[in-house]
Amino acid sequence: MKPYLLSLAVGLLVGVIYSLVHVRSPAPPVIALVGLLGILVGEQIPPLVKQLIAKENTVAWIGQQVKPHVFGELPRGTLAPRAKADEQVKS
Rank of each mutant, 00 (worst) to 15 (best):
M1Y: 12
K2N: 05
P3F: 02
P3M: 04
Y4K: 00
L5E: 02
L5T: 04
L5I: 13
L6V: 14
L8R: 04
L8G: 11
V10N: 04
V10I: 13
G11T: 09
L12D: 00
L13N: 01
V14G: 03
V14F: 13
V14C: 06
G15H: 03
V16Q: 13
V16A: 11
I17K: 13
S19K: 06
S19P: 00
V21F: 12
H22S: 13
R24F: 11
R24Y: 09
P26N: 07
P26V: 12
P26M: 12
P26R: 03
A27H: 00
P28T: 13
P28V: 15
P28N: 14
V30T: 14
L33Y: 03
V34P: 00
V34L: 15
V34N: 14
G35N: 09
G35E: 03
L36I: 14
L37F: 09
I39V: 14
V41Y: 09
V41Q: 14
V41E: 12
E43T: 06
I45S: 08
I45W: 05
I45T: 08
I45V: 15
P46V: 09
P46W: 15
P47H: 11
L48H: 01
L48G: 09
L48T: 14
V49D: 01
K50L: 13
I53M: 10
I53G: 01
A54R: 14
K55C: 05
E56R: 14
N57A: 12
N57E: 08
T58I: 12
V59P: 00
A60F: 04
W61I: 01
G63M: 04
Q64W: 00
Q64C: 04
Q64T: 10
K67F: 02
P68G: 01
P68L: 10
H69R: 12
G72Q: 02
G72Y: 02
E73Q: 13
L74H: 08
P75K: 02
P75H: 05
P75F: 05
R76S: 06
G77Y: 09
G77V: 04
T78G: 04
L79A: 08
L79K: 08
A80K: 10
P81Q: 07
R82V: 03
A83N: 04
K84M: 11
K84D: 07
A85V: 04
D86H: 04
Q88D: 07
K90L: 11
S91L: 13
S91C: 05
